[in-house]
């Protein structure tokens, strides 16, 4: 028992929550886009944009608040580009592949041009301070779980909860309707294009804050591809949550903690980390399989033609949304 308690050290809790934060913000962005009927694969790009612009703003003399705001705006602009492309009827998957590559390469190019020829940029900046909550901080377990993070960590979890509540209200319901059946939603008088554009813009901003968490919140430096696939993990986490807002926190925690767990595992045992790191991905595959299977079965029982559920999640053809 002691060994088990020892394994779940306070630092593991801390690492887990910190590693979860960018994933959670990205997952919110991904779920929001999916709910608006758009498969948004450019989360990685927006995170990198946020990470780079955030640090840029901080280095330019901005406060941490303006740095985060700048990151949000840069991500929102990227999201706006996607919204515009969607409006035109551009294939957003291809567009996102281009954006991801562009963000990865252009950020490093600009970094090298602006700050010299090296592969890392470490400006003299102060990252966000940790917030220590009085009273709670001193409670054993709970103190480690809840206290001692920077503001973005709390913001991420608050955003996830706000996102859940959002679906209880009218605009949220409209968004749900759009994601399920854009045609029907449009027929019911919902301004589908406006909802989709707004969702993509907000999603871009939220994902970018997830990137800014890494630079402005944690490390104060920028390196090539420093999000290291967090954007893709976020998309995966959103799918593990079946894009349900209420499930986003547990799904993201699973990914965040599997990393923390892996770190812990290799300092206490000889088990290969890969075992733990694989788990959340395998879990997502299982969830995707089960969800898909149930949807196919349900459709069959209702006598509807079998159609892969995935197909409905794809970006709608240009004319059906842009034209409506």
């Amino acid at each position: 028992m002691d060994a088990i308690l020892n394994f779940f050290s306070s630092e593991m809790l801390h690492s887990g929550i910190r590693l979860t934060t960018p994933i959670l913000l990205g997952a919110i962005a991904s779920a929001l886009s999916s709910r608006a009927g758009v498969l948004n694969l450019a989360i990685e790009a927006k995170m990198l944009v946020g990470a780079f612009v955030g640090l840029l703003a901080l280095d330019a003399g901005g406060s941490t608040f303006t740095a985060i705001l700048a990151a949000f705006l840069a991500g929102a602009i990227t999201g706006g580009l996607m919204a515009g492309a969607h409006r035109l009827g551009v294939d957003l998957i291809v567009f996102a592949i281009g954006l991801n590559m562009l963000a990865l390469e252009l950020s490093v190019y600009l970094m090298r041009v602006l700050f010299g020829g090296t592969g890392v940029w470490t400006p003299e900046v102060d990252t966000l301070d940790d917030i220590h909550i009085p009273f709670i901080e001193s409670i054993p377990f709970l103190g480690d779980l809840l206290s001692g993070y920077n503001v973005l960590v709390y913001l991420a979890f608050a955003a996830a909860i706000a996102f859940t509540l959002f679906f209880r209200y009218r605009p949220g319901r409209h968004l749900l309707a759009i994601g399920e059946a854009p045609g029907a939603a449009a027929a019911a008088g919902i301004a589908v294009p406006r909802y989709q554009a707004t969702s993509l813009i907000v999603a871009g901003g939220v994902a970018a804050v997830g990137g800014a968490f890494l630079t402005v919140g944690e490390l104060g430096l920028f390196t090539r591809g420093m999000t290291d696939g967090a954007g893709w993990i976020a998309v995966t986490a959103a799918l593990l949550a079946m894009n349900r807002p209420g499930f986003l926190i547990p799904a993201s925690l699973l990914f965040g903690f599997s990393d923390a767990f892996a770190i812990r595992l290799q300092s206490t045992t000889d088990l290969p980390q890969v075992v733990v790191q694989l788990l959340p991905f395998l879990a997502t595959l299982v969830v995707l399989g089960i969800v898909g299977y149930r949807a196919t079965r349900a459709a069959a029982l209702l006598g509807m033609p079998k159609r892969p559920r995935g197909a409905a999640k794809r970006p709608q053809p240009a004319t059906s949304t842009a034209g409506s």
Partner: peptide
């Protein structure tokens, strides 16, 4: 060898021990 966030977490983990 190029993941400072991982290095930080690992060090904090050792520190907690």
């Amino acid at each position: 060898f190029s993941d400072p966030a991982l290095g930080k977490s690992t060090a904090l983990d050792l520190h907690s021990d």
